[in-house]
């Protein structure tokens, strides 16, 4: 028990450190503040007029999708940060200290969750300012945000693995973009799946992003949920169950040499 408390304490110290760095690294700060807001504005005012979303104002349709995309990218911080810490000897420093060794990875992914929460709050605020409205109860909205944060946490582990596999922080980041961008665009995040060619439609319907975005729409806008909420939960937990152990194993291998 004492060990567990100490491990939690260590994780929080590392989380705090990972968050403190962000305002000092302008590219990261912009990536998680200006960029999502810019995307919201671009999509609503540039594409919004051309995209038909029957039954919705485009801003209402877009917000759950673009929040999901931003949150999925939150793990980028882990990929870049972990890769940098390994190369610059910070991980060695941590591993020579009497702290819980699990705190290095846990503190990384937890920092992503905090950052995702902040980015979500910012985007919701901007969304509300330009006409977005929740159509559900407060508990439903909170459940939706929690679900998205859990999905983002799953992606943090995928990004952690990329950070551990990549040869540099930069390539860790770009591999992440290469994977997440197509996944988010070929989904129901920005346009109705029905508007895509049939081959893409098949992909988009199976895409976990579509499932998570549909679940978020159900919880934010009150659209029919079907089994999307449970499926989204299952996807998130499933990805964590697969990628967290793989990332931890990879981390152990990397630091052992």
């Amino acid at each position: 028990m004492r060990q567990l408390l100490a491990a939690i304490g260590d994780t929080l110290v590392i989380t705090r450190r990972n968050l403190m760095r962000i305002p000092r690294a302008p590219d990261l700060l912009i990536g998680f503040t200006v960029q999502p807001v810019m995307f919201v504005l671009l999509f609503v005012y540039v594409f919004g007029g051309a995209i038909k979303t029957p039954g919705f104002k485009y801003v209402d349709y877009l917000m759950p999708g673009i929040i999901t995309q931003t949150i999925a990218f939150g793990g980028y911080l882990t990929a870049v940060g972990l890769s940098e810490d390994l190369r610059k000897g910070l991980v060695d420093r941590f591993r020579s200290l009497p702290m819980a060794r699990s705190a290095v990875l846990a503190g990384r992914t937890l920092a992503d969750v905090v950052m995702n929460l902040l980015a979500t709050a910012l985007m919701v605020a901007v969304g509300l300012a330009i006409g977005f409205r929740f159509a559900t109860s407060v508990p439903q909205v909170l459940a939706g945000i929690l679900l998205l944060l859990l999905f983002g946490f799953a992606f943090s582990w995928i990004f952690a693995l990329m950070g551990l596999l990549a040869s540099s922080a930069e390539s860790a980041g770009s591999i992440g973009f290469l994977i997440v961008f197509p996944l988010t665009f070929v989904s129901s995040a920005f346009v109705p799946v029905q508007s895509m060619p049939s081959l893409l439609q098949a992909f988009a319907k199976a895409n976990p992003f579509t499932i998570v975005v549909d679940a978020a729409r159900a919880l934010f806008l009150g659209t029919p949920a079907g089994n999307s909420i449970w499926l989204a939960l299952a996807w998130s937990l499933g990805l964590i169950a697969v990628f967290a152990p793989v990332a931890v194993a990879r981390y152990r291998r990397v630091v052992a040499n």
Partner: peptide, 21 residues
């Protein structure tokens, strides 16, 4: 030098101190 470039000298040492509990 395994110190965090984006933290201040004080923050680096404070963090290490906390991790020594």
């Amino acid at each position: 030098a395994a110190v965090d470039e984006n933290l201040t000298g004080f923050e680096n040492l404070e963090m290490v101190g906390r991790l020594y509990h």
